[in-house]
């Protein structure tokens, strides 16, 4: 922030002139519309959902405004929900690791490409982010489903029986599709870090006698580590609450948190229970994001802080 003159006009020490007093209101006028919009349309719905999560639900009487903690005790202490939460975070963790292993090297490879290829490959990598998730997931259904390409391939190799081979409704299938959906986030995140890296540091290390792999490990990787870490955070948090892909590929058989919220709301119609699952998911998400970014910030403030 280099421009701070207007701000300092507002610091309160300036002489109380008419002009500086009217200037003090400018930021509030400017942010006012958006702030009101957000407080009403984001604050209210979340607050109402929080309240809803304490209401009572009965299959015959529906929702009643009697307050109860039973929704939360169900979510927090029932083995059924434990399984769902554990599965969700397991999928998130595996997806994140796969994205690191695939996305980070790919970003580096694209970064080292020559001119036209570099932007073409970047476009191919990032482009899918703009294509509807439903479309991309449909592609995986066609690939890994009962008579999909993968199955035909396996049959041709004699690895699958005549009944075919399907990854639908399996954790592996969900992870593969999730990785496909989210790996561009890793590439873009590492890419943003790479743009700040001076590649001649690699040459410097080579000139000092380091082997190419050592250069990668000791010089380049540490410099893009913040990108890897922030990409991981985005991917982990998104996977943990992702709906479309687990819903289409995992189906009812492989429930994750998001699909169970959907079912509580739109099939069972037990809104209070669905609300409490969402609140738990939200709190977990916020806690994970906050503590992780605090850790990353503390770890890298000295060497690689935003400068």
């Amino acid at each position: 922030m280099s421009e701070m003159t207007l701000e300092s006009r507002m610091a309160g020490r300036s002489r109380p002139s008419v002009r500086s007093r009217s200037l003090a209101w400018i930021p509030f006028w400017l942010t006012g519309p958006a702030a009101v919009f957000f407080l009403v349309l984001l604050g209210m719905p979340l607050l109402m959902t929080l309240v809803l999560s304490f209401y009572t639900f009965d299959y015959t009487a529906g929702i009643s405004e009697t307050l109860t903690l039973s929704n939360y005790t169900d979510v927090l202490f029932d083995g059924y929900f434990h399984e769902i939460f554990l599965r969700t975070y397991e999928i998130s963790l595996i997806t994140t690791l796969c994205c690191v292993v695939l996305g980070a090297p790919e970003a580096y490879i694209i970064y080292r490409m020559r001119r036209p290829w570099r932007s073409i490959c970047l476009l191919i990598t990032l482009g899918p982010l703009l294509i509807s998730v439903v479309v991309r997931t449909l592609g995986w259904v066609l690939l890994i489903g009962g008579n999909g390409l993968l199955s035909q391939f396996m049959q041709a190799l004699g690895l699958a029986g005549t009944r075919g081979f399907s990854l639908m409704y399996t954790q592996t299938g969900v992870v593969i599709a999730m990785v496909h959906v989210l790996v561009p986030f890793m590439v873009i995140s590492v890419w943003a870090s790479l743009r700040k890296v001076d590649l001649s540091t690699g040459d410097a290390a080579l000139s000092l006698g380091a082997k190419p792999f050592t250069v990668l490990r000791r010089v380049i990787f540490p410099q893009v580590l913040p990108g890897v870490l922030s990409g991981s955070l985005i991917i982990f948090a998104l996977t943990a609450s992702y709906f479309a892909t687990p819903s289409i590929i995992g189906g009812r058989r492989l429930k994750v948190v998001a699909t169970s919220v959907y079912d509580e709301y739109l099939s069972t119609m037990n809104w209070p229970l669905g609300a409490s699952i969402s609140i738990v998911l939200l709190v977990l998400n916020v806690v994970i994001v906050m503590s992780y970014s605090r850790w990353v910030e503390r770890r890298f403030r000295r060497t690689l802080g935003e400068g």
């Binding site: 003159t5 006009r9 300036s14």
Partner: peptide, 11 residues
């Protein structure tokens, strides 16, 4: 900047 009017003088 004070002469130009972009910064308000304290005194």
């Amino acid at each position: 900047q004070m002469i130009a009017g972009f910064v308000t003088p304290t005194a």
